[in-house]
Design a protein around this nucleic acid. Structure first.
Lengths: 168, 168
DNA sequence: GAAAGATTGTTGTTGACGACAACAATTGCG
DNA sequence: CGCAATTGTTGTCGTCAACAACAATCTTTC
């Protein structure tokens, strides 16, 4: 096969002339994505960026990022977990969780309590203010979720959750 | 309202005693995600991590990452674009695109050609080896896409693409 | 046509994040 | 007991998004 045929086949160019170096103006809307439109990863990446930005913005007043929220939620629902258990459950590196907990502990939302049964590990708990703060975070997170609904539609969001349920 | 009631309501604890610092063993499968399961962002993030890892692994032999692939695809489909145009279309910072193109140009896949009409900008083109390389990348990317199908199902993947079509 | 403002590519910084490697303390097992 | 495995920690590396600043160049405005 000829090497140069590839692009010509896929893109019957609007202009046939070889305009190398022309830098013709492009209408942003007419730039084709080509093979990218068939890739789930591309759409998912763009969507994930959008959704995180909205989350960060919606929870901006309380300065909580998505990862922090996930850690607090899991600890709140399962008090006494070790760092390893939380890291495994959320797919976070245990090395990374150390810094996350440092920050959350400084903010008095979480406590690392030395375990009596295994002196290597820490039992993670929310503080009293951490509990009330998390309740507030959940309210804001629910608001963020409504933004998602508004963006892709209520039923589409539910379909999405079903499709991706296996990755939780 | 009482602050301490929050968690107790949501999680009728398996053990009623206050086991602060107990570090009881947890079956990894029984750690609840609580509010996290209702958040699209969490599922999308986990899925995106999985899908990128598979892409990187599947295209590992040719050393092409998702972002590089998207840049090459768009340039291949729209030769002569400026860096700004590519950056805007793909939602990449133009500062970041500089490094991406530096790398791709070093590998002789892309050329920056000085524009004659606007001497500030560069017209981006694939090299001849770049064209053939991209064809190979697309083959491997299609293989990756089959992995996605195998993971979530053929019809679910298509539904996903429909739902997220607005983010491309 | 010249001054003022906007755009393009570039360089640099910051911070979040995933991936790895190494280490001390501790536990568990042969 | 001795040795492997686990837990938390520290550190490094590379990717990536978000900004800020800058020189060169275009565009708008007077």
């Amino acid at each position: 096969m000829t090497t140069s045929a590839t692009r010509a086949e896929r893109h019957p160019s609007p202009r046939k002339r070889a305009d190398t170096g022309a830098a013709r103006p492009h209408d942003p809307d007419e730039i084709g994505l080509d093979a990218l439109v068939g890739h789930a990863g591309y759409a998912v990446r763009r969507f994930q960026i959008w959704i995180f930005q909205d989350f960060i913005k919606t929870l901006g007043a309380v300065d909580i990022r998505p990862t922090q929220y996930s850690v607090l939620t899991v600890i709140g629902a399962n008090p006494g977990l070790s760092q390893m258990a939380v890291a495994k459950r959320l797919g976070i590196e245990r090395a990374r969780l150390v810094h996350l907990l440092d920050s959350l502990e400084q903010r008095k939302l979480v406590r690392r309590i030395k375990s009596k049964t295994d002196r290597r590990s820490h039992a993670l708990h929310l503080t009293a203010p951490g509990e009330t703060a998390l309740a507030k975070f959940k309210t804001l997170a629910a608001e963020h979720e409504r933004h998602v609904e508004a963006k892709i539609g209520k039923e589409n969001r539910e379909r999405l959750l079903e499709i991706l349920a296996g990755f939780t």
